[in-house]
Design a protein around this nucleic acid. Structure first.
Length: 199
DNA sequence: CAAGAGATCATCT
DNA sequence: GATGATCTCTTGA
């Protein structure tokens, strides 16, 4: 299994976001392994992206975004949910990719328990849902995805998504971002049922 | 089905 | 003191 390394995440954010489609997000929980295939991402690219938390400058919360590629940025939103991002590009250039939805692969029973539902389709088809399913919370914020002992990382298992099956669209939930809200920085796999509902 | 409201809290002004 | 990179449930047609 080829685990994605720091070099992968140091590439341009849009490129990382599109290339993450078809990769496997793996969560180690003690002896247990939970995993899913990434089918939807969003790029938050640079200090001028008004949709990015980092657009307002470096604060306690966003300081992770200014750090090195390959770190996880986990934040809580609306009091209930968490969102999972991976830091990209270079140090001091705030950028990250939000992972928005997964096709559940390993540990499905356990994920169903965590989510308190038994609907496969609703298990991880949204940023808040996948964090609940994989037991991701702020404890993982600022930890690394590219170390040997990482408990949350991404693997390449040889699945290739053809370029014509990668759809670019405007990002979700960023109406406040002015001209940036319509930029095609969201990527998802064409016709995949596990992409979050808002198209 | 679509639309709307409510839940609830860390973070920043 | 306001707000949000969301989700779920309820309503009403």
């Amino acid at each position: 299994m080829a685990r994605l390394d720091k070099k992968f995440f140091q590439q341009k954010t849009e490129h990382v976001a599109s290339q993450l489609l078809g990769k496997i997000l793996v969560r180690k929980l003690g002896q247990r392994t939970l995993s899913g295939m990434i089918v939807e991402t969003e790029a938050y690219a640079g200090p001028h992206d008004l949709a990015s938390h980092a657009a307002k400058g470096k604060t306690k919360r966003t300081s992770v975004m200014f750090a090195e590629a390959g770190l996880w940025y986990v934040y809580s939103i609306y009091g209930f949910y968490h969102c999972l991002n991976i830091i990209t590009e270079r140090k001091d250039y705030p950028s990250a990719v939000l992972i928005r939805s997964l096709v559940p692969l390993e540990g499905i029973k356990y994920m169903e328990q965590s989510r308190k539902i038994d609907s496969l389709i609703n298990l991880a088809n949204g940023p808040g849902k996948l964090c609940q399913a994989l037991k991701i919370d702020k404890a993982l914020n600022n930890t690394s995805a590219v170390l040997k002992n990482s408990i949350l990382f991404i693997e390449n298992r040889g699945i290739k998504i053809a370029a014509q099956n990668i759809i670019k669209a405007a990002r979700v939930g960023v109406d406040y971002a002015g001209v940036w809200k319509n930029k095609p920085l969201r990527f998802y796999v064409k016709d995949n049922k596990f992409v979050s509902n808002k198209i």
